[in-house]
Simulated scan of single mutants.
Amino acid sequence: MTIQPSRLSDPAVRAFVYAVNSHDLEGFMSLLAPGATMCDDGSDRDLAEWTDREIFSSHGHLEVDNESDGGRTVLARYRNDTWGEMRTKWVFTVEDDGRISRFETGQA
């Protein structure tokens, strides 16, 4: 059962899902702390290059099925024009100022 983005517990994660699903690159980048990092399937990636390729230029979309860790870990169906749909896990590190300093994703 899908959790509507507006019902996600963590405000930063909620904003992240909204930015991805509305293809709002400027909004997405404003959610990230300076020097933010990310990891895909266990390997650190260049955040700007990865998000362009895997989210924004390929029309990425997240449908969250489950959340834990206060909303900072989500299980979601992720789809984009490159890979189709897959079950994924996303783990977010959110700083005191509410910005995301790291996210890790991969197949669940």
Rank of each mutant, 00 (worst) to 15 (best):
R79W: 06
T88F: 13
L8K: 01
I3N: 01
S57W: 10
D10G: 05
R77S: 11
R102A: 07
R79G: 09
M1D: 02
T73I: 14
S43N: 07
Y78L: 05
R99A: 12
F28R: 07
K89R: 15
P5A: 03
E63T: 12
A48F: 13
S22V: 10
D24K: 14
A108F: 11
G60E: 03
A19P: 05
R45Q: 06
A33E: 02
H61Q: 12
T82H: 05
I100C: 09
G70P: 09
H23N: 06
L31S: 01
A36Y: 05
Q107M: 15
E95I: 07
M86E: 12
S30F: 00
S22N: 15
D40F: 11
G71Q: 09
H23P: 04
K89T: 04
A15N: 05
G27D: 03
G35D: 07
V17T: 08
D96Y: 06
A108I: 11
D24I: 12
E26K: 14
G98W: 07
T73L: 13
R99H: 12
T37Y: 03
C39I: 13
E63Y: 00
D52L: 02
R99M: 15
A19F: 02
C39L: 08
Y78W: 06
E95D: 13
E85C: 07
E49K: 12
V64K: 00
D96G: 14
Y78M: 00
S58F: 08
N66Y: 03
D40I: 08
R99E: 13
M86V: 15
D52V: 00
G70A: 09
W83E: 06
D24N: 08
H23M: 11
P11K: 10
E63N: 02
R87F: 01
D46K: 07
R45M: 02
V17Y: 01
Q4Y: 03
